[in-house]
C-alpha cells in the first residue's frame, strides 16, 4: 500500500490556550482517528500544541487564484475598515 491510496487531511494546531487553531500542514491517513495520531507525531512532537484538528482536504473549499481581484482588490482602498484609529489598551495580547 502507498500513501496515495489514503486520503489527504489538513492539520490545524492550537499552540496555546487563547490562540486559535492555525494551519500546520497536511498528511495522509486512512481515517480521521489515524489522521489525528499522525498529526500528533508529525506536527506536535516538540510540544508545539495543546489541541489538534484534522479536516479532510476534500472538504475544504478554496478561493480560486483567478478570483483574486474581485475578491480582495476592493478592500485595499478602504482604510476606514481597519481599526487603526484606536489606541490598544495596555495588557491586551494576541490582538
Amino acid at each position: 500500500m502507498t500513501g496515495t491510496d489514503w486520503p489527504l487531511w489538513e492539520v490545524f494546531v492550537r499552540s496555546r490556550r487563547g490562540l486559535s487553531h492555525t494551519h500546520a500542514g497536511s498528511l495522509h491517513a486512512p481515517d480521521a482517528e489515524m489522521a489525528l495520531r499522525n498529526a500528533r507525531d508529525l506536527y506536535t512532537r516538540r510540544s508545539e500544541g495543546v489541541s489538534i484538528w484534522v479536516v479532510p482536504s476534500a472538504a475544504v473549499t478554496a478561493s480560486s487564484p483567478d478570483e483574486k481581484d474581485p475578491f480582495f482588490e476592493p478592500a485595499a482602498d478602504k482604510p476606514y475598515r481597519h481599526p487603526t484609529f484606536y489606541e490598544i489598551p495596555e495588557g491586551v495580547q494576541h490582538l
Binding site: M1, T2, G3, W6, L27, H28, A29, R37, N38, D41, L42, R45
Partner: peptide, 12 residues
C-alpha cells in the same frame, strides 16, 4: 515503513 507518516510514528 509503508508510509512516511507511519515511519515518523514508529521513530517517535
Amino acid at each position: 515503513a509503508p508510509v512516511l507518516e507511519e515511519e515518523v510514528a514508529l521513530a517517535n
